[in-house]
Nucleic acid binder design. Structure first.
Lengths: 323, 323
DNA sequence: CTGTTAGCGCATTCAT
DNA sequence: ATGAATGCGCTAACAG
């Protein structure tokens, strides 16, 4: 592998000059620049980014930490994140944490040692406490302790929107169904928006909201559904949870959307060209990724002002509602 | 950030000794090792991987190049690849190429400059020609020019298996439907296996196999289906293409699996805990990732012997067949 | 066993 | 405008 020294020798200049033309530094005479460029081509020289990173301590690398890439919401997010990151000439390291705090910390450690310039994370834990304050980090979807930058979708209004769409679909008695984490997260606002809008619109509603790690969840769900057999509209905490509810509904011989209208949250699709799997409150994933990357780069460049972004959600009509 | 020098000074030893304890070099007296470890803890020292990379030119990084992470087959593959890579203390850079040759080459260039130790790629192009021979690279799913290491599923026997499963399901007249790339790839063997097994089992069969980039594909598919309206079993080149066929079948008022049995290829799922989207010939994705990583690490360690792995596929019964 | 030293390839300051 | 020299933090060879 040719180095800068080789180029300098061949071009008959000093290494400093070569460095200057590589970095498009102004102060270099046209004629010498040409000489150097010729030598570069001749030797097929390409700069060693590692050496440069060591020197200027900027790796042009960011990391994306998420529970598992094998989930359409995260893989879509990762897709758009990588797109934006690579557009800026940076690279992206992917980290699957399985939502395990220990793994997250392990990754954080590794990333610090590798001098990544910033981190985008989707996690339930307060990982910001494990990274030195000079390592920019932005959280997506669920935020945590104060002072951490984040971008999220408007969960509260998403919950409200679901109620109104259910009403538009003619529902008279609706339900929210989902699970929640031990810790409070912004995701809880989906339920909150649902409840408050139900009250305000004066529609009868029921809530099923168990702890995520609970036992016999399917049994409890079925029991809830049997007890409230006259429910004609359901909103679930996310699309995947919706799939579980739908399975039980099938067992109970309820037809969707004939007997029951159904709205999920997230708006997952298996890929760009596939359909949404149900009617849903769609998170603006592409925009979320874009905002997160933008925010991260601002922080990398030293601007720590804009810290919180909440993006609007929208309703997508799928097969599980009529309108 | 504390450096090795700081640790050495605090511990009252030379930097060489610190390096030795970091790298678990044997020849270090117990007592001095303790001193050094104490200093490390005290300073909260953590090695700078970039400097080490520059020195020993081993970045402990591999790259995964694929068309788009936003596709369940690739995201599952990426999930397992990252798992295996991280298990060995390496990190993984993710590259979405959109199947574009220029983007692939761009990534390759960037990866070379960043001294990645190896590459796993899912691509239709002969990208090996753009990387120096000392950069290990293994190809997954579709292989290319001779001399490139690859792991693939047994496409040929997958095609045969599909025929036999269709027969088991009582089909009398079956069809293969799919598209193909301009270049020959191993994927073509799915069709080949289908044809040869159909002949050998003496069952009537039809083939629909257009070029991938063709025009009016849906129209052609519908026409094919109308012309062969008595077909009672279909095998598609992959699950996603199968989805497209199913849509047309619905339009034609064909019931699956009552009127027509249906088998896809790949075995995609939206995530670990979700169901397969149809009856399918499943690629052993987890194993493919494992083999690819293993092969790559062998090459990184200088062993260039084992180069080709073909993994068996298996049948998964979903909702689109009876047995 | 351990301290010292010479680079790894580059960016940058300081002369010139 | 440009060459020479210095050092980023680390490993490995060498000397003791």
């Amino acid at each position: 592998m040719a180095t800068m020294k080789d180029v300098a020798k061949l071009a008959g200049v000093g290494v400093g000059t070569v460095s200057r033309v590589i970095n498009k530094n102004e102060s270099v005479k046209e004629s010498t620049r040409l000489k150097v460029e010729k030598a570069i081509k001749e030797l097929n020289y390409t700069p060693n980014e590692i050496a440069r990173t060591l020197k200027i301590s900027q790796s042009k690398t960011i990391a994306l930490i998420l529970p598992t890439i094998w989930h359409p919401f995260f893989s879509e997010l990762a897709y758009y994140t990588e797109e934006n990151v690579s557009k800026r000439g940076f690279k992206m390291i992917l980290c699957n944490s399985s939502s395990k705090k220990e793994k997250e910390i392990e990754y954080l450690d590794m990333l610090k040692q590798n001098k990544v310039d910033g981190i985008i994370a989707i996690t339930y834990n307060d990982i910001d406490r494990y990274v030195s304050s000079n390592l920019p980090i932005v959280s997506i979807d669920r935020h945590f302790s104060e002072g951490v930058a984040y971008v999220t979708s408007d969960n509260y209004n998403g919950g409200k929107l679901a109620v109104n769409k259910l009403i538009e679909n003619g529902c008279k008695k609706i339900a929210f169904m989902g699970t929640h984490n031990e810790r409070n997260t912004d995701v809880d606002n989906r339920r909150k928006g649902f409840e408050e809008e139900s009250i305000s619109k004066n529609i009868e509603y029921k809530i099923f909201d168990e702890i995520e790690t609970g036992q016999d969840l399917e049994d409890k769900m079925e029991k809830f559904l049997r007890q409230n057999i006259n429910i004609d509209g359901i909103f679930t905490i996310n699309d995947f949870f919706g799939l579980r509810v739908i399975k039980i509904l099938e067992k109970l011989n309820k037809k969707i959307p004939k007997d029951i209208k159904f709205i999920g949250y997230d708006g997952v699709k298996m890929s760009y060209e596939q359909d949404f799997i149900m009617s849903t409150i769609r998170q603006p994933v592409e925009q979320m990724a874009k905002e997160a990357v933008e925010m991260l780069f601002k922080m990398i460049e030293g601007d720590y002002t804009s810290k919180k972004v909440k993006l609007p959600v929208y309703y997508i009509k799928g097969d599980t509602t009529i309108v």
